[in-house]
Nucleic acid binder design. Structure first.
Lengths: 262, 262
DNA sequence: CGGTTCGTTGAGGCCCATCAATCTATGTGG
DNA sequence: CCACATAGATTGATGGGCCTCAACGAACCG
């Protein structure tokens, strides 16, 4: 079974998964969509597809014909430089749309690749467009997802441009903690499948320097790592170090709460 | 008069501006919208508003109640670190929406500020939402703008994370050349109001190092600068240096051409 | 148990930051 | 029309954060 080596983070109630691959994701639980809209959306989805780790789901420059929604595992979006450098521009976890730009753009200028074993469902582009045309709430959800991604990218540019290595790492860990909803009091613990090399490609560093930065966080008692598990020992301190303010992640807000039309 | 110190770039045919502040912008000319939709949109706009240079239109953390569309001048979106660093996350030129996130988010986590004297029109949030609800094409245009911005931000993260100072500068100049539609043969010339300090805040560098990087581009005959005018002498070479491929800017494509519903 | 991936450590060097001074252009008031 | 103020561009000297190269250790796995 996919993801069996990563127990906690990947298990969904199997009944609801069979009925609905979108169960527990923001698309279905956050009040974006009415029941009718949700059913219409789920009706348009392809059956879930399993991916091994390190599988290229979309290659850079490929034509766009379907959206992929992650339902299990971790996936990333990346771009490469001619010289061979790689920069990851998004970390995608269950509930995220991997390539929303395929909705309106003909060509995709980034790759999409699984980090762990993963599952995705596909939504054919023409069906997504038809849904957005017929149901304004679905169109709004697409916009919402795009804007949410935008907010994350803006923070990443701030981090890449103006933060030190340790700060960037701290900020990223805080972001993931919130997105994975892993915080418990002042601690946070979550399954963390990123290698230091992947972290380097997120943070614009080398793996060696990521290593040294992690050691600093460990030596200051801010984090602990063991067998693909990340523990943040002191969330407030890590947040302060990384200049992290969770509001940009829009936790607890949803499209229908933001000024609905009466 | 606004922008009188920057003659060429700011002059619009005044007749069309009076009739429609959106004339010549992507929203009205690129085929996103039908005539009816365009009229509905323009009917919802506030009168144009003039801004002096260095004016804060939206402050970080402000509540969101209106979208601003730039019609003249240059504007930027930025965020600051607690330590006082500043990172610009978008350069906005006429036709751009300055804060699309205000459409669906309650709080804005970035500032918006004019770089030059500028003009903007406002679109009240509830009216924008109503338009998107009633006209799918307008909703689609909002999504399109958000995705387009996303694509630019992804390139910026690539640049910030994996490019040298000179490459970042080269890439940015290539991007602006395309967005301003300033290319003529292998040359490109455009009004360029960014100080080296602003450039530094875009590129994640210091003003001093921007200066040195520009000198390198000049000494290699790639660019020339004089009195707020940028001339790219050799566009192909500058593109190669910056690893620039214009496709991500979606020039010449528009929402209605990308897989319309039959 | 050997291979492979990932993490760790060390030495050395470069790119870019920092600090500070000077130069230039533009604008303003007398 | 000049004296002066100010913003921006330029230059130099110095240092540090991160990169590069290379080797070794640890964990996992068939």
């Amino acid at each position: 079974m996919i993801g069996s080596s990563h127990p906690k983070a990947f298990v969904l109630p199997s009944a609801s998964r069979v009925l609905s691959p979108l169960a527990d994701t923001r698309l279905s639980t956050s009040g974006f969509l009415s029941l009718e809209e949700r059913l219409a959306l789920e009706d348009a989805l392809s059956p879930a597809r399993s991916l091994r780790a390190h599988f290229d789901l979309v290659r850079e420059g490929a034509p766009a014909d379907a959206l992929f929604i992650v339902t299990e595992g971790w996936v990333c979006r990346y771009a490469t430089t001619p010289e061979g450098g790689r920069q990851i521009s998004a970390l995608l976890i269950p509930g995220d749309i991997a390539n929303l730009d395929a909705l309106l753009f003909d060509q995709i200028d980034h790759g999409v690749r699984s980090i762990t074993d993963a599952r995705v469902v596909a939504l054919a582009r023409h069906r997504a467009l038809a849904l957005a045309e017929r149901y304004p709430a679905i169109a709004r959800a697409f916009t919402w997802f795009s804007l949410a991604e935008n907010a994350i990218l803006r923070k990443w540019t701030l981090s890449l441009g103006r933060h030190s290595a340790v700060q960037r790492l701290a900020h990223l860990l805080c972001e993931l903690s919130v997105r994975l909803d892993a915080q418990r009091g002042e601690e946070s613990r979550f399954h963390f499948p990123l290698t230091q090399e992947l972290l380097a490609d997120v943070l614009g560093l080398t793996a060696v320097h990521v290593n040294r930065s992690m050691q600093r966080l460990r030596s200051e008692g801010l984090i602990e790592t063991a067998s693909r598990t990340m523990t943040i020992r002191d969330v407030p301190k890590l947040r302060e170090l990384g200049g992290f303010d969770p509001r940009y992640l829009q936790v607890g807000s949803a499209a229908h709460t933001t000024g609905g039309l009466k």
